[in-house]
């Protein structure tokens, strides 16, 4: 490297200083060494947490639009076949659906409690609450499994797999196409949410979170609430028509 007397060498040098002692120069509100969780491109924890939250909310918007597409299909086909939808929904088991709704709402509560616990530095309690959340999610899936199994058995299936004979109205298989697409996609989201929470649990067990830094727990919570919320819409739309 030849002549060092250019401006960039100057600033590179200050850059080094900056990264060593994080003096106030350069950053108007110098962030000191910063906690271990702070990534290099953020100025301070607050900026990092704000970014994470905004990013998560935008992501949730995309999730809502994903299901929004399905809800549109639902609305269109229901508008075209109101009778058939009414008849077809009767074969769904409202008791099981309601039970699952309660299960999911409870799991949302325990997830919220888990966040609260981390905020108060009670990591063990947080772990218990998250454990309950995952267990409830498991219960939801098991119930869903039995519902699915029943429908497979009865031939209440989408499209060309449909073989059930106890329904009036044209093309009742379309209701089941939408039912399976929507609840199936939702079940995938439940599994993703469980994995997300499990990952946060591992990190909580490693004592990575505390009242100072708990963004991932909060994110997992947000995601889980969304999964819950989608079910709260799916349940009446599919199980409680008419």
């Amino acid at each position: 490297m030849n002549s060092p007397d250019t401006a960039e060498t100057v600033s590179v040098k200050t850059g080094d200083n900056d990264s060593h002692d994080h003096s106030a120069e350069g950053h108007g509100n110098g962030h000191g060494h910063g906690p271990a969780h702070l990534q290099h491109h953020f100025t301070d924890s607050e900026q990092q947490a704000d970014s994470a939250k905004l990013g998560m909310w935008v992501f949730l918007v995309t999730e809502i639009l994903l299901f929004g597409g399905l809800f549109c299909f639902y609305a269109i086909y229901r508008a075209w076949n109101p009778e058939m939808f009414y008849n077809a929904h009767k074969v769904l088991n409202v008791q099981l659906g309601a039970f699952n709704t309660v299960v999911l709402i409870t799991s949302s509560l325990t997830m919220a409690l888990a966040i609260r616990s981390v905020q108060m530095n009670k990591n063990t309690q947080a772990l218990i609450n998250m454990g309950i959340t995952i267990a409830l999610a498991g219960v939801f899936l098991v119930v869903k499994y039995f519902e699915y199994e029943h429908k497979f058995h009865e031939g209440q299936l989408p499209g060309r797999w449909y073989s059930y004979e106890g329904l009036q109205g044209t093309n009742p298989h379309i209701f089941f196409s939408i039912y399976f697409a929507a609840t199936g996609l939702h079940a995938i989201h439940i599994i993703l949410g469980m994995s997300f929470i499990a990952w946060v649990m591992v990190r909580t067990a490693k004592q990575e979170f505390s009242s100072i830094y708990y963004t991932p727990v909060e994110m997992a919570g947000l995601y889980w609430h969304l999964v819950d919320l989608i079910w709260i819409y799916l349940f009446p739309l599919l199980y409680l028509i008419g």
């Binding site: 989408p158 060309r160 093309n171 298989h173 379309i174 697409a181």
Partner: peptide, 10 residues
């Protein structure tokens, strides 16, 4: 073959 886009299946 879930039938959502298939005219033969409604």
């Amino acid at each position: 073959g879930i039938g959502i886009f298939d005219p033969a299946m409604g």
